[in-house]
Computed example of a mutant assay.
Amino acid sequence: MPSQSSPALGTRPHNLSLILRLVHENGAQSRAALTEQTGLNRSTIADLVAELVRRGLVDERVPDVAGRVGRPSPVVTASARVVAIAVNPEVDAIEIAAVGLDRSILVRERLPNDTVPTPAVVVATIAERIAAWRAGPLADVRIAAVGIAVPGLVRTSDGVVRNAPHLGWTDVPLAGLVGTATSSAAFVDNDATLGAIAEHRYGAGRGIDDIVYLNGGASGIGGGLIIHGRAVAGAGGYAGEFGQNRPRISADGDRRTGDGVLEAEVSRRLLLDSVGLEGADDETLEAALASSESPAVADEITRQAHVLASALANAVNVLNPTLVVLGGFLATIADLRSEQIAADVDALAMSESVEGLEIRPAALGADRLLIGAAELAFAGLLADPGERA
């Protein structure tokens, strides 16, 4: 995610940003709680909240507390009437949602693809759905920006998709194309990077500052890194491509390709084939795998879990995280073979590196990439609400 410049500490714009971010990330807060968390006095908090209300970014109400003596502290919530359009284009479907500043999902659609979508198809789809929603569920809301989570290498400074191999995209100026088509600001980043940010802020990694996140989708496996509480993307913004690494596979029976990368050996397509599905969302695939009584299905899950664990052990040795989070179909493998994966990682990684390590499935489930894309879209507004509201 590209960094956003923030106002100077202690200034009014900085304090507006601080209040808005607190209610966006932590949910409804009383004025008293905001006073305690920020160290600002009550009159300053009241003035800042009033400005955010005027700008339509927060709502304020007095709670109805039965039997309470005295006037309770007003409660401040981020507005659901300011939204980000969150998009995740994949080879099998385009997912698009409107996510409120309060993190509610106002509307969401999964649009299956007949063929791998071109950039033009994705841009047209985004524009069409926004236009349709503006005449319906989004008639009374303000769109802050469009955030797009792409399964590929993204130059975040200008929103150019450098290489999305499974989509067949190279050097696509996606942010510019979507911005022109929708008349809204548009931002693009790697899907796994945004999934890592979402899980760190709101999901399995909340409160943990050193995380390796792996995302398994129709396009393969990508990764995101949180180090000392910050997303790390590398010199060019392309860090975390775990799917292109070659895992250690000691048993010939566990190998499906001669010199395969991780995403060829641990594959959503192979899991779908094992249960006889041409296509399915993650929930349908998980249900089919969990309910299957076929030994061949069980063997394929076990095989992929072994290979996945070898890749995780390498990541743990290199990065020494506190937590590994697995999203998409990798979360399904983790749910079905949690003890096996933990034992394999423990056996393959350096003993010191696995001390205190946890491996968890993504807590946000199917929402993780859309929430991450919304965070990308909201970043500028949160950094300086006085300038961008």
Rank of each mutant, 00 (worst) to 15 (best):
R155D: 09
A131W: 13
A127G: 14
T182P: 05
P165D: 09
S104G: 13
A196T: 03
F187E: 01
H200Q: 14
L153N: 01
D189I: 06
S183N: 15
R129L: 12
A144Q: 08
T118F: 01
G205R: 03
I208R: 15
A97I: 11
F187Q: 04
A181H: 05
V116F: 02
E90H: 06
R201Q: 15
E95Q: 15
L174M: 13
G203C: 11
P137E: 11
F187C: 03
H200G: 11
A139Y: 04
I208W: 10
D102P: 01
S183A: 15
I126L: 06
P151N: 02
G136S: 14
R134D: 13
V172S: 04
R81F: 10
R201E: 15
A175L: 03
A84H: 06
L177N: 06
A186I: 01
A132M: 13
F187T: 05
N163M: 08
A93I: 00
D102N: 15
E109P: 04
R206M: 11
V122C: 07
D209S: 15
G205W: 10
L111E: 05
E128M: 06
V87G: 03
G136V: 01
A124Q: 15
A84R: 06
L101H: 11
I94E: 01
S79K: 05
V188D: 09
I197H: 10
Y202R: 12
L167G: 00
I148G: 05
T125S: 06
A93P: 08
N190K: 01
G152T: 03
A164W: 02
G207K: 12
I130A: 08
T125G: 04
A93F: 04
A127L: 10
F187G: 03
L138E: 05
S184F: 06
I126Y: 00
G159P: 12
I126P: 09
R206A: 15
W133N: 04
A196Y: 09
A78S: 12
T118Y: 07
N88C: 00
R129S: 02
L106P: 09
V99T: 12
T156H: 10
L138S: 03
V123C: 08
A98E: 11
A98K: 13
A186T: 02
A132K: 14
V161E: 03
A198N: 02
L138T: 03
T156F: 08
S183L: 12
A181P: 10
T125D: 07
A80T: 04
S183V: 10
D209T: 13
N88H: 12
N88F: 00
P119S: 12
V146H: 10
S184V: 11
V121A: 13
A204D: 11
V146I: 12
N113H: 07
W169R: 05
I208G: 09
V123R: 02
V122S: 10
A78G: 03
V87Y: 05
S79V: 07
G203Q: 11
V82Y: 06
L174R: 03
S79W: 09
L194P: 08
G100R: 07
G179Y: 02
G195M: 07
A132Q: 14
A175W: 01
H200E: 15
P117R: 00
A80N: 06
S104A: 12
V83P: 05
V141D: 05
